[in-house]
Write a protein that binds this DNA or RNA. Structure first.
Length: 488
RNA sequence: GCGCCUCUAGCUCAAUGGCAGAGCAACGGACUCUUAAUCCGCAGGUUCAGGGUUCGAAUCCCUGGGGGCGCACCA
């Protein structure tokens, strides 16, 4: 178990005393980045005559007798501080600032003889005393336990981590802007659900005391969003935190973020186009290119992405032609031959075919591909395929072997939806913890009329992983779910 | 839930059965243009916890805990 610097007691007391001198507010007039923007072009040894005030954390210090240099880092970047006994108030104090302390500095903008843009410290104020250190100044903090449990330390110690979370923020911001530009309206729907629905997943349960009832944390916002389409929001989206009571891995966190959107009058073909355009747009805007590297391999996100049916892809990768009309025993035999170990008696052809696909094909799909036309049996909210029997108009976008998006032409027929719900409820009664229940509120909404609608869900964390080039979902979630530290 | 790996100073890491160490940070000092500054000095440890084997355990074994990766589940 990693713990960071605990200075000896006498020192902690001295540091604690420093806190009593901390001012209540401070007013910097520049960020370090704006200083560079404004003054980077001046000559070495130049003096500008411009006095500025900046603030941040002192991350490095280099003393040189009656001179001292420091690196002041703020959220925008860093700038060198240049202090000297001849011009800096309380120079001795300046040389004793602990690395990690927050300080505010006022002084002239200069460039040193060596050409480093600097603030020539006239006065300085301690804004926080760091009683714990920020790790090795060269190697940072690499202990992943510390990085995830004490993210505040990771963010200061590791520039790459800071960049990833800035990229995440810009991704969501760009996504929101792009959708709003296309007439999509952002909404917020409940996270407490009386009936868990919208995805096949085990929900978390909680309890409301005043209502005296159990509630479920949402596994998807889907049903509420489609009710809003019924209500006249023709283009609607939510960036939704959802909760699934399932395993943790480098690709799964129990709470994660999904973009879900619904577009009236559209079908799943429109959703494909929207998906590839949105992802390519984000890559261009944030990375400047759609040709990226992921896990050491090239990956091109430029549209159009390949479109292929699920059964064609299975044939391509497993060398076997499956068909939903084949006898289920034959499909089970094929599944076993391809390494599907647990095959439940209750599975119909659709579920068995999906298992074959997931076992043999999904992880091998690298470049973006729309895997189209899923079995109806495993897609209780998607509309029947207009041509292919027993399948629905649904696709998953697979990128780098992972599901990035899931979309359908939405099922709009309330009678058919009820039949699908009842089948789900039967499966649930038979022990399938991921099956859905009958949602009467949703069925009543459908009775009011859902027009043809395309719906799309994108895993935001996984999208950020792709754009940031990181391979663990914990590197894109600020505070990932962890076991609590053992109390000592 | 299962398997493999891992846990040593605040951080990053050595020491693999034989005296627990280094660099950085911290602390004291030298140095008027440094860039991970440099140099000198000082201090810092229940080697994750508990048990066992052994003349001797950071090292080998067992149990427990944290973490990582993989499998399973899933997005």
């Amino acid at each position: 178990m990693a713990h960071l610097a605990r200075p000896p007691p006498h020192l902690r007391k001295e540091r604690a005393r420093l806190v009593t001198d901390i001012p209540y507010r401070f007013e910097p007039d520049r960020s370090t980045a704006s200083l560079h923007e404004e003054f980077d072009r001046i000559e070495p040894a130049a003096e500008t005559g411009v006095t500025v005030t900046v603030a941040g954390r002192l991350m490095l210090r280099r003393e040189q007798g009656k001179l001292a240099f420091g690196e002041l880092r703020d959220s925008s970047g860093a700038v060198q501080l240049f202090a000297g006994a001849a011009w800096t108030e309380d120079f001795d104090g300046f040389t004793r600032i602990s690395l990690g302390d927050w300080i505010g500095v006022t002084g002239e903008v200069v460039k040193t003889k060596r050409g480093e843009l600097s603030v020539k410290v006239a006065t300085w104020t301690r804004l926080a005393a760091a009683r714990q250190g920020f790790g090795d100044k060269w190697r940072g903090v690499t202990d992943v336990d510390t990085r995830y449990r004490q993210r505040e330390v990771d963010l200061w110690a590791n520039e790459s981590s800071r960049r990833v979370f800035q990229l995440r923020s810009r991704t969501i911001s760009s996504m929101r802007r792009w959708l709003e530009d296309r007439g999509f309206v952002e909404v917020e729907t409940p996270t407490f659900h009386v009936v868990p629905g919208g995805a096949l997943a085990k929900p978390f349960t909680t309890h409301h005391n005043a209502l005296g009832m159990d509630l479920f944390l949402r596994v998807a916002p889907e049903l509420f969003l489609k009710r809003l389409v019924v209500g006249g929001f023709e283009r609607v989206f939510e960036i939704a935190r959802v909760f699934r009571n399932e395993g943790l891995s480098t690709r799964h966190n129990p709470e994660f973020t999904m973009l879900e959107l619904y577009q009236a009058y559209a079908d799943y073909g429109d959703m494909m186009q929207l998906t590839e355009e949105l992802v390519a747009h984000l890559a261009r805007e944030l990375l400047g290119t759609t040709s990226i590297q992921y896990a050491g391999q090239p990956l091109d996100l430029a549209p159009p992405w390949r479109r292929a049916t699920l059964v064609d892809l299975v044939e391509e990768h497993a060398g076997v032609r499956v068909d939903l009309r084949m006898p289920v025993d034959e499909l089970r035999r094929i599944a076993r031959e391809h390494g599907v170990e647990k095959i439940d008696e209750s599975w119909g052809p659709g579920k068995v075919v999906l298992e074959i696909y997931e076992k043999t094909t999904e992880s091998k799909l690298w470049g973006p591909v729309f895997v189209c036309d899923y079995p109806r049996e495993v897609s209780p909210l998607a509309r029947d395929h207009r041509e292919v029997p027993d399948t629905v108009e649904r696709f998953e976008a697979i990128v780098a072997g992972r599901e990035l998006a899931n979309a359908f032409s939405e099922l709009v027929d309330p009678d058919e939806q009820r039949r699908r719900f009842v089948a789900q409820a039967d499966a649930k009664a038979a022990g399938d913890e991921e099956a859905m229940a009958v949602d009467e509120d949703y069925l009543r909404a459908l009775e009011h009329g859902l027009p043809p609608t395309g719906g799309l869900g994108i895993g935001v964390d996984r999208l950020v992983m792709l754009l940031a080039g990181v391979e663990s979902i914990r590197d894109v979630i600020l505070f990932p779910t962890l076991r609590p530290e053992a109390s000592s």
